[in-house]
Design a protein around this nucleic acid. Structure first.
Length: 443
RNA sequence: GCGGCUGUAGCUCAGUGGUAGAGCUCUCGGUUGUGGUCCGAGUUGUCGUGGGUUCGAUCCCCAUCAGUCGCCCCA
């Protein structure tokens, strides 16, 4: 016999039932918190036309395109090329533009879907993964309060996830206007400068400085100031103010830049709005700039405090006008996205999950013999009506075998319909019970 | 796309120039209807793929594919 030996497809994760059970709990929790802030749910197709994804110009992302196997040679010119979306922001922009007249603004939506990126998989990096996005989009102008609401929601979501109890995380906030404002008068490649400053935590201040000084343009004389700025971390607006002042005293920043002043002001205001969160939950970190080019103001990143190198598990920011490629309106927005799969897989590998239950069943109904099948089925029906999940064992096999089955599946209770008794597998106790009145003991 | 490491049973891995092993898992049993422990028995592999060296290769060489880590980039 020749069998095809399956191999996992790298970067396309799948979980065992016990892990999937936790994953579903996570999604339920996330949805509940999002909805508690009034966000509504939408779902967009897995694919967009390639023209939509590349509307802003060239696409340097690793995007999967879809192709029909039986496509004929002449077809290619007629059909729009389809691509799997690599984030949920571009589909959102298209969605908002398309349904503009039917939406109520500010439009607050959440979206929990898979996205695809054809990058090389690594720890915490997949080619197919879930993102949980929330965004607020408004017409013409969007209040700054929303920039502060994002981290508050995320903090509530993340700190309430099963398995996160022992994890320390930190939301880092900055504003792109701060560094960009200072770079305005300087002849340099701004994107390249930000890209280098973004690495400061990884490569250190010294190497960051050297990289900046190796750039062409007028940057080298200014590099040490930028490094000092990017190194700033502050847990509240007072500390941020002070640290900026220190640098200003020493180097006489050209803080006359309108953009710089606005960026600092917005960032301080956000920190003040978030003062109700535990200290250190959200910090200002001026090295955060984010790679995506559409962010224009506030930017977010989230890391494990003890392992920032794992990468951001939740990022986002503010954009002035995302949908300009699709509609002739000004639609500013702010959004943030939980890297669900990255976060989930880390906690899974660390063994943070209680994976004792491999089935949603609360009760295994024993089938003692064929004569008791009706009695057993009936008891199961009554219990199901009372919102218990009940599995009726499939064959009148030895009790030993049926119990072993419950044990292996992690089903916490076993019901003996002939004896009118329930066994608590964990406590190893067995007691009389009726399907109409039985209640599990509280933990 | 670039660089390092790896590729042997379902899983984790050992091993030798002369056609392979351990642990775990799994299945069954340990008589009279109550799981996890323990004991006993049993199943499992084209030693990633193709070529070369050799009397002979899973072990040496080359290529290739796949995995993995780092870079790039990002959730």
């Amino acid at each position: 016999m020749n069998v095809y030996k399956p191999k996992p497809v790298s970067g396309f994760p799948e979980w065992l039932p016990e892990e999937r059970l936790i994953e579903q709990q996570w999604m339920d929790h996330i949805r509940k918190v999002f909805e508690s802030y009034g966000f509504c749910s939408i779902e967009t197709p897995s694919v967009e036309e390639l023209d939509v994804i590349s509307a802003k110009g060239e696409v340097d992302k690793e995007i999967y395109v879809l192709e029909r196997l039986h496509k004929e040679d002449g077809d290619s010119g007629k059909e729009a090329r389809l691509a799997l979306h690599f984030d949920q922001t571009v589909p959102l922009a298209r969605y908002v533009a398309q349904h503009f007249n039917d939406l109520v603004f500010p439009f607050k939506r959440y979206q929990i879907q898979r996205v695809w990126r054809g990058e090389r998989p690594q720890a915490g990096r997949f080619r197919e993964f879930y993102q949980c996005d929330i965004d607020v989009i408004n017409v013409d102008a969007l209040p700054l309060h929303f920039d502060a609401e994002m981290p508050a929601i995320i903090w509530e979501v993340l700190s309430g996830l099963p398995g996160m109890e022992t994890e320390k995380i930190q939301l880092r906030v900055s504003n792109r206007k701060i560094l960009l404002g200072l770079l305005d008068d300087i002849d340099c490649d701004q994107v390249e400068v930000l890209r280098i400053l973004d690495k400061i935590e990884k490569i250190g201040e010294q190497e960051t400085l050297e990289l900046l000084q190796s750039l062409s343009g007028d940057i080298s004389g200014f590099a040490h100031v930028l490094v000092k700025l990017a190194a700033i971390k502050a847990i509240n607006s007072g500390e941020l103010e002070k640290k900026l002042q220190d640098i200003n005293d020493e180097y006489i920043l050209s803080s006359s830049s309108e953009s710089y002043v606005k960026g600092v002001g917005d960032l301080k205001a956000i920190l003040n709005y978030l003062s109700h969160l535990p200290e250190g939950a959200v910090v200002a970190d001026l090295s955060i700039v984010r790679g995506l080019d559409y962010y224009t103001g506030t930017v977010y990143e989230t890391v494990f405090t003890d392992d920032p190198g794992y990468g951001s598990i939740c990022s986002g920011g503010r954009y002035d006008d995302l949908a300009s490629s699709y509609i002739n309106k000004k639609l500013p927005g702010v959004g943030i996205s939980i890297g669900f799969s990255r976060l989930f897989d880390r906690l899974r590998q660390q063994g943070n999950f209680d994976i004792s239950r491999k089935s949603p069943a609360d009760i295994l109904m024993i089938l003692p013999d064929e004569e008791h099948r009706e009695t057993a089925a009936n008891a199961a029906r009554i219990l199901r009506k009372r919102n218990f999940n009940v599995e009726l064992y499939h064959a009148p096999q030895k009790i030993k075998k049926q119990l072993s089955y419950a044990e292996r599946k992690g089903i916490p209770y076993v019901w003996f319909p002939d004896l009118h008794q329930v066994k608590d597998m964990k406590r190893q106790t067995q007691a009389e019970a009726t399907p109409e009145h039985w209640q599990p003991e509280k933990d």
